[in-house]
Design a protein around this nucleic acid. Structure first.
Length: 111
DNA sequence: AGAGTGACTCATA
DNA sequence: CTATGAGCCACTC
Protein backbone atom coordinates (compact mmCIF):
# COMPACT_ATOMS: atom_id res chain seq x y z
CA UNK A 1 0.00 0.00 0.00
CA UNK A 2 1.00 3.53 -0.25
CA UNK A 3 -1.14 5.37 2.22
CA UNK A 4 1.64 5.47 4.77
CA UNK A 5 2.87 8.65 6.28
CA UNK A 6 4.79 10.60 3.75
CA UNK A 7 8.16 12.06 4.53
CA UNK A 8 9.25 14.59 1.97
CA UNK A 9 9.42 15.03 -1.73
CA UNK A 10 6.74 15.51 -4.27
CA UNK A 11 4.11 15.64 -1.58
CA UNK A 12 5.21 18.81 0.09
CA UNK A 13 5.27 20.58 -3.22
CA UNK A 14 1.71 19.59 -3.85
CA UNK A 15 0.63 20.84 -0.46
CA UNK A 16 2.33 24.15 -0.98
CA UNK A 17 0.67 24.68 -4.30
CA UNK A 18 -2.72 23.66 -3.00
CA UNK A 19 -2.37 26.10 -0.14
CA UNK A 20 -1.63 28.77 -2.70
CA UNK A 21 -5.04 28.40 -4.28
CA UNK A 22 -7.07 31.49 -3.39
CA UNK A 23 -10.57 31.19 -2.04
CA UNK A 24 -13.25 31.04 -4.65
CA UNK A 25 -10.88 29.24 -6.99
CA UNK A 26 -10.25 25.62 -7.83
CA UNK A 27 -7.37 23.86 -9.50
CA UNK A 28 -7.24 20.67 -11.51
CA UNK A 29 -4.92 17.77 -10.93
CA UNK A 30 -3.46 18.21 -14.36
CA UNK A 31 -2.62 21.84 -13.73
CA UNK A 32 -0.89 21.10 -10.48
CA UNK A 33 0.96 18.22 -12.04
CA UNK A 34 2.38 20.62 -14.59
CA UNK A 35 3.57 23.01 -11.91
CA UNK A 36 5.26 20.17 -10.14
CA UNK A 37 7.15 19.41 -13.27
CA UNK A 38 5.57 16.01 -13.60
CA UNK A 39 3.21 14.75 -16.22
CA UNK A 40 1.32 12.47 -13.95
CA UNK A 41 -1.83 13.93 -12.44
CA UNK A 42 -2.11 10.79 -10.37
CA UNK A 43 0.77 11.90 -8.27
CA UNK A 44 -1.19 14.95 -7.23
CA UNK A 45 -4.20 12.99 -6.15
CA UNK A 46 -1.99 10.48 -4.52
CA UNK A 47 -0.17 13.14 -2.58
CA UNK A 48 -3.45 14.50 -1.33
CA UNK A 49 -4.60 11.02 -0.47
CA UNK A 50 -1.53 10.46 1.67
CA UNK A 51 -2.18 13.79 3.28
CA UNK A 52 -4.77 14.52 5.90
CA UNK A 53 -3.53 17.95 6.76
CA UNK A 54 -6.25 20.34 7.82
CA UNK A 55 -4.05 23.12 6.49
CA UNK A 56 -4.28 21.88 2.96
CA UNK A 57 -7.53 22.82 1.21
CA UNK A 58 -7.81 19.60 -0.73
CA UNK A 59 -11.42 20.45 -1.43
CA UNK A 60 -10.19 23.12 -3.85
CA UNK A 61 -8.60 20.48 -5.98
CA UNK A 62 -10.92 18.96 -8.53
CA UNK A 63 -10.59 16.89 -11.64
CA UNK A 64 -10.49 18.26 -15.14
CA UNK A 65 -14.24 18.51 -15.40
CA UNK A 66 -14.53 20.27 -12.10
CA UNK A 67 -15.92 17.14 -10.55
CA UNK A 68 -15.08 16.44 -6.94
CA UNK A 69 -13.26 13.26 -6.07
CA UNK A 70 -15.38 10.34 -5.05
CA UNK A 71 -12.79 8.81 -2.81
CA UNK A 72 -11.99 11.61 -0.48
CA UNK A 73 -12.68 9.25 2.33
CA UNK A 74 -10.80 11.10 4.99
CA UNK A 75 -9.25 14.46 4.67
CA UNK A 76 -9.32 17.80 6.36
CA UNK A 77 -9.46 15.83 9.54
CA UNK A 78 -12.69 13.94 9.26
CA UNK A 79 -15.15 11.98 7.24
CA UNK A 80 -15.59 13.94 4.09
CA UNK A 81 -17.35 13.08 0.90
CA UNK A 82 -18.03 14.96 -2.28
CA UNK A 83 -21.09 16.43 -0.62
CA UNK A 84 -19.01 17.97 2.12
CA UNK A 85 -16.47 19.20 -0.36
CA UNK A 86 -19.25 20.79 -2.35
CA UNK A 87 -20.51 22.62 0.70
CA UNK A 88 -17.09 24.01 1.39
CA UNK A 89 -16.67 25.25 -2.13
CA UNK A 90 -20.11 26.80 -2.19
CA UNK A 91 -19.27 28.52 1.05
CA UNK A 92 -16.39 30.18 -0.76
CA UNK A 93 -18.74 31.46 -3.40
CA UNK A 94 -18.12 28.82 -6.00
CA UNK A 95 -20.92 27.91 -8.37
CA UNK A 96 -21.82 24.38 -9.33
CA UNK A 97 -23.16 23.40 -12.71
CA UNK A 98 -24.55 20.32 -11.05
CA UNK A 99 -24.18 18.48 -7.78
CA UNK A 100 -20.73 17.21 -8.43
CA UNK A 101 -19.37 19.64 -10.97
CA UNK A 102 -17.83 23.02 -10.27
CA UNK A 103 -18.20 25.84 -12.74
CA UNK A 104 -14.65 25.80 -14.06
CA UNK A 105 -15.45 28.58 -16.49
CA UNK A 106 -15.63 30.93 -13.53
CA UNK A 107 -13.44 29.40 -10.87
CA UNK A 108 -10.61 27.61 -12.57
CA UNK A 109 -7.39 28.76 -10.95
CA UNK A 110 -4.76 30.02 -13.31
CA UNK A 111 -1.64 32.04 -12.79
C1' DA B 1 15.94 -3.36 -8.46
C1' DG B 2 11.34 -5.16 -8.72
C1' DA B 3 6.48 -5.16 -7.53
C1' DG B 4 2.26 -2.98 -5.96
C1' DT B 5 -0.62 1.07 -5.60
C1' DG B 6 -3.16 5.41 -6.85
C1' DA B 7 -8.39 11.53 -4.77
C1' DC B 8 -6.11 11.35 -12.94
C1' DT B 9 -6.40 11.82 -17.96
C1' DC B 10 -7.00 10.36 -22.64
C1' DA B 11 -8.72 7.38 -26.31
C1' DT B 12 -11.95 4.20 -27.93
C1' DA B 13 -16.53 1.79 -28.24
C1' DC C 1 -23.82 9.39 -20.39
C1' DT C 2 -21.00 4.67 -18.94
C1' DA C 3 -17.13 1.19 -19.32
C1' DT C 4 -12.37 -0.41 -20.49
C1' DG C 5 -7.67 -0.20 -21.37
C1' DA C 6 -3.39 2.13 -21.31
C1' DG C 7 -0.05 5.72 -19.92
C1' DC C 8 2.27 7.78 -16.39
C1' DC C 9 5.52 8.48 -12.18
C1' DA C 10 6.54 8.93 -7.03
C1' DC C 11 6.34 6.39 -3.10
C1' DT C 12 6.88 2.18 0.17
C1' DC C 13 8.26 -2.58 1.14
Amino acid sequence: MADYQKREGLFEKVYEIVRTIPEGKVATYGQIAKMLGTSDPRKVGWALAANSDSETPCHRVVNKEGGVAKNFGKSLGGDIGWEVQRSKLEDEGIFFVDEQHVDLTRHLWSL
